[in-house]
Amino acid sequence: MKRKPIVALIYDFDGTLSPGNMQEFGFIQAVGKTPEEFWRMSDGLAVGQDASNVLAYMKMMFDEARKNGIRLKKSSFRAFGKDITLFKGVREWFGLINEYGESHGVRIEHYINSSGLKEIIEGSPIAKEFKHIFACSFMYNEKGEAEWPGIAVDYTNKTQYIFKINKGIFSANDSKKVNSSVAEEKKRIPYQQMIYFGDGDTDIPSMKIVTMFGGHAIATYDPSSAKKKAYAQKLEKQGRASFTAPADYTKDGRAYRLVCAIIDKIKADYDLKLLKSNKA
């Protein structure tokens, strides 16, 4: 039986699948701040210490929770995740794409590549849809409480997960296998079979890597924001993204049509490659 090619759909989370930052759907309110106050303090900490914005927001979460008597366990983060708002059609999207892939002879896998918190995403209504979630996370003490950042994912760190998906590596800690030399034909998911979804600055290096090696990147934007639409169009014009699409994940949306067309192309290229090598 002929093996089906795997197509990886890789998503940023905040601004791509959800219209806001995940901390804004419960956590920030629980510590008595408005989103504006929290991010102003976090950004101020990063600038004042000349530090990573990602590590700064993780410290702010830790400090503000402790001040307000909130014990940050994995279960606490996952509870905040259940109230995350998602863009139109996101809940049904995965089933639609999986069905299209199955009917067109490809296997679909979905991944998250986010600077948000893995623990919050794990509590979201769509967590079960992902083959793996690459995102920031905390270390936990013997009581199961967060005590230190374990993984901080910024714009450059995001690129390592593209390489890991390419080689079929799901450990965030691994640094040996991901850097080992592997023949192209032995890599689990070729770059040409990747579709990257992103909306902001932290996605640019990952988009560039995927497109540079023959994959596709879609710059998504909140359809209610002219500013975000203009930014997405700028990414396409600069060659960072292959296409733009509003964050409408319904069957009638442009994103669905784009992905179906890309899947068709990936399958055709895969079949032609097999024919060329006389394996089909």
Rank of each mutant, 00 (worst) to 15 (best):
Y100S: 01
K234Y: 04
A226W: 07
T211R: 13
P5S: 05
A183H: 14
I28D: 02
P5E: 10
Y11D: 05
D199R: 10
D252N: 14
W39C: 06
Y249E: 03
D50P: 11
K176M: 15
A255H: 01
N278K: 12
L235D: 00
N173D: 15
D222T: 06
Q23K: 01
A65W: 00
A232R: 00
F94A: 07
A135N: 08
F243L: 12
A219N: 07
G32E: 08
Y111F: 15
T202C: 11
K227W: 07
E145L: 10
I189S: 02
I112K: 03
D222A: 09
P246F: 03
A226T: 15
E102Q: 13
M207A: 11
I209F: 05
T250K: 02
T202A: 11
D269I: 10
G105Y: 03
C136A: 13
E109G: 02
Y155T: 06
D264W: 10
G44K: 08
A79P: 01
L86Q: 08
G69M: 11
D199M: 12
I120K: 02
W148E: 14
T220S: 12
Y57W: 13
D222L: 07
E185H: 14
M207F: 14
S277W: 11
T34N: 13
E36F: 06
F94T: 04
E184H: 10
E37N: 03
A65V: 08
E122H: 08
A261P: 00
H110Y: 07
K128Q: 14
F213M: 15
Y196T: 08
V178N: 09
D43R: 09
I28M: 06
S175H: 15
A226Q: 14
L45D: 06
K176H: 15
D50F: 14
G116N: 04
I126V: 13
A217G: 14
M139W: 11
L235M: 12
Y256S: 11
F197G: 08
R71G: 06
I165S: 07
K265H: 09
Y256D: 10
S175T: 15
A56K: 00
P149S: 11
V259D: 00
M58P: 07
T159D: 11
S75P: 02
I162D: 01
L117A: 05
I162F: 02
I112Q: 00
D43L: 12
T244K: 04
G239T: 13
I6C: 05
L272T: 08
A65Q: 09
S171L: 07
F134Y: 15
N98A: 08
L72Q: 02
N157S: 10
E64W: 04
G20W: 12
Y140I: 09
S18R: 00
I218Y: 01
M194V: 04
K2H: 12
A46W: 02
S103W: 00
M60E: 08
Y155S: 13
I70K: 03
N173I: 12
Q192F: 05
I108F: 01
L55I: 09
G101M: 06
I6E: 07
S42P: 09
E24Q: 12
L9M: 08
K273L: 11
